[in-house]
Amino acid sequence: MGFFAELQPPFPTGVVVGNTYYATLAADSPLRIRIDFQGTIRDREYGGLRRAVLHPDQGTLDTTVLTFADHQTFARRDAADGIGPGWDGYGRIRDWHESGPPPWIGADLTGLRRAITHYAQIWIPTSAPAPARSKLPSLPSARPSTGRSH
């Protein structure tokens, strides 16, 4: 719950169940979004977030992964620890301890939030008015043909 509270997803309603966030994409839409942690090959180690768009009748419509490394979520922490791409723990969080500070302490969630917002905008029906059409000058009406050619 704490991670998603800090992430502040941009949806009108949302709830955390276990380690998964569910939300309505728009008040009048049947579409839902599910965001959970993308695991690695290690138990309780996560390399990003997995987001999915769900429809109540059609099931999962789309799934994508946002890696922490691609969105610079732990860039400051990793730089301070002297680790980079290819190093153990780079761009990862590990939830191996029952006590202590949350494993995402120091995360910069700006890139993830922006990516989630942009992704949701693809799926949310727009209610913006259609752009005004440009007015073309009226063409003179055609004269009836007299049958003569000029």
Rank of each mutant, 00 (worst) to 15 (best):
W96Y: 13
P103S: 08
D78I: 05
G91V: 05
W87N: 13
D70P: 03
P101Q: 13
H71Q: 01
R94W: 03
A75H: 00
I93T: 02
P101A: 14
I124H: 03
G39E: 08
Y90P: 10
I93M: 04
A107E: 01
G82E: 08
I122E: 13
H118V: 13
P101C: 13
I116D: 02
R50D: 01
T117V: 11
I124D: 00
D108E: 10
H97T: 14
A130N: 10
A128H: 11
P85V: 12
T40D: 04
I105K: 14
A107M: 07
T126F: 11
I105S: 15
D62W: 15
S138E: 15
L139G: 06
T63C: 11
P102G: 12
V65E: 03
V53K: 05
G39Y: 05
T73R: 00
S99A: 14
G82I: 08
E98Q: 13
D108Y: 04
P140N: 06
G47I: 08
D43A: 12
P56F: 06
A52M: 12
T126C: 11
I93A: 00
G59S: 06
R114A: 15
T64A: 10
S127A: 14
G91H: 02
T73C: 02
P103W: 05
G89P: 04
H71L: 02
D62L: 15
G39W: 06
D36A: 04
H97E: 14
R76S: 13
R50Q: 07
D36G: 05
D78N: 09
R114Q: 15
T117Q: 11
A115T: 01
H55V: 11
E45H: 05
Q121M: 12
T60N: 11
D81R: 14
G48T: 02
T40F: 01
T60V: 14
A132N: 12
H55E: 11
G86K: 09
D70C: 04
R133A: 15
T67L: 04
H71Y: 01
D108R: 03
F74R: 01
T63P: 07
L54W: 05
W96G: 12
A107K: 00
L61H: 12
V53M: 08
I116A: 00
G100H: 03
H97I: 13
D95V: 06
T126R: 13
I83V: 10
G106R: 02
D70H: 06
P103V: 04
I105L: 15
G59F: 05
G89R: 08
A75T: 02
I35H: 00
P56Q: 07
T117F: 09
T67F: 00
G91D: 03
Q121R: 13
D108W: 01
G100M: 04
Y90D: 11
G48L: 01
